[in-house]
Simulated assay, not measured.
Amino acid sequence: MRVTFLTGEYPPMQGGIADHTALLARHLAPLGVSSSVLTARRWQEVAPDSPDPAVHPVIPNWGWRCWPAVAGFVRRHRPDVLHIQYQAAAFDLTGWVNWLARFLRFLPARPRLVVTFHDLRVPYIFPKAGRFRWLSMLALARHCDAVICTNREDRHTLERALRKPPRLAYIPLGSNADPQPPPDFDRAEWRKRYGAGKNSLLLAYFGFMNASKGGEELIEAVALLRQQGIDARLLFVGGEVGHADPTNQAYAARVRGLIQRHGLEAVVFRTGYVDLPQVSANLLAADAVVMPYRDGVSFRRTTLIAALRHGCPVVSTAPVNPAFIPEIRPGENMLLAPPGDAPGLALQIARLVDSPDLRRRLSEAALELGRLFDWPEIAHQTYQLYREVCP
């Protein structure tokens, strides 16, 4: 079976969609799937010397010109499945990809069309687009042969919005960083890099910075903890912003300003973009990973899944609707604060101080929860969906 992934980002570009696409292709290979990647020409700016023949950076841009470019590729290469990895920001918020599936349906001998919605955030398209933005999301879902949602809430939303939904599958995301620290990793020595001793509370935040992830509440919480005499230290693991949405620079600047305002420069650290063994070592060195999402904890966040796979105690925020995420048991496998509540977040983090038993129980429960996101199983479910839609 030949599958082409249409994606706005791909390694070495930085981003969750890039990592997911590469990992999915890798785990589909043992099932007999030959994968290729169709992306924009700007990929060559990041990987000018890449010899990978499976990557085709031939899309001029994600405006209207992507339609004939994709159609031409499909006619030449004839994949069995065109799998769109959708996130609005990865396609420059333009909305043209949202109507691509409808356009491709008119092609003779077209491939089966599958879309993974990494989230349901709408594209900008143009000023005052209003309801047309949501309609463009529904158009993409309606004109594909199958839709993959990465969480139950998004699947429920699409089921209610579409009169005649196509095949709707819930297939979770996998981790973009499984435990693989350097061979000489020593936790105590690694913590010394950040001035963290036995009595310190080293907190990690993993992933890019944007307003939905609650960076400001995190800084406020660290400041509150230190005011209580707790040696709280914060480590930002990974790059600050990705290739897909550089507009997050403004929010990252606000967070940096807040760090300065509270005088936390000496206890807040940044790794910048580092390789996977370095990411793994930093997560394993932390006492907890804190991800205070403003829209509530969700399994659409691959960095959260990575923290679980590492067995990190996790402090996050309450989901909008707990019924859609029953695997999370507050106080048992995760600590949850109200979204947007810095004092509440600090209160939950403080529970970890002088409580090694709680940290141990949360760590063990995180590992158990992390087993739900096994890449071979994710690839198997995706392959089965391909087989259902292919004639």
Results as ranks from 00 to 15, higher is better:
M13K: 09
A40W: 07
Y251Q: 15
E240I: 11
P319S: 11
G32M: 05
A89E: 12
R75C: 00
E364L: 12
T150S: 08
L24P: 01
M334L: 09
L224E: 13
V74L: 14
G174R: 04
A29R: 15
L28V: 03
E265C: 01
L202R: 10
I148L: 02
G130T: 12
L335N: 03
R75K: 15
A379V: 06
T157F: 06
I84W: 04
P343G: 06
V314G: 00
R187N: 06
P277Y: 04
G344E: 08
V70G: 12
R131A: 09
L336E: 04
W99I: 03
G16C: 08
L82Y: 06
D341P: 01
F106T: 09
G63I: 01
V81H: 02
I84F: 01
T39M: 05
A281N: 09
Q381M: 09
L372M: 04
V122C: 05
V222E: 10
Y170M: 10
L138V: 10
F299R: 06
V122Y: 03
T317Y: 10
A379D: 10
R329V: 09
A232V: 01
A47E: 02
I328K: 01
S50D: 14
R41M: 14
V37P: 05
S200A: 15
A161V: 12
R112H: 08
T21N: 10
G214Y: 03
L6H: 04
N176A: 03
L113P: 08
A232K: 12
D295R: 15
L120T: 10
S35D: 03
G296D: 10
A204I: 02
L23S: 07
V289R: 01
P108H: 13
A211G: 03
F208W: 08
G229C: 06
L168H: 11
F5P: 01
Y251L: 02
E159N: 11
G195M: 07
T302P: 00
P376Q: 05
N282E: 15
P356K: 11
L358P: 13
Q85E: 13
S363I: 04
D186N: 13
Q348E: 14
C144D: 10
G340R: 15
S355G: 03
P12R: 13
F373Q: 01
I84P: 08
R155G: 00
Q227A: 07
S316E: 08
P60W: 07
F185N: 10
R371C: 04
V268C: 11
R110I: 02
H156T: 08
P183Q: 12
R167D: 05
F5E: 04
S35C: 13
P391N: 09
Q87M: 14
T39V: 01
V37W: 06
I230M: 10
Q384Y: 02
T317G: 11
D119H: 11
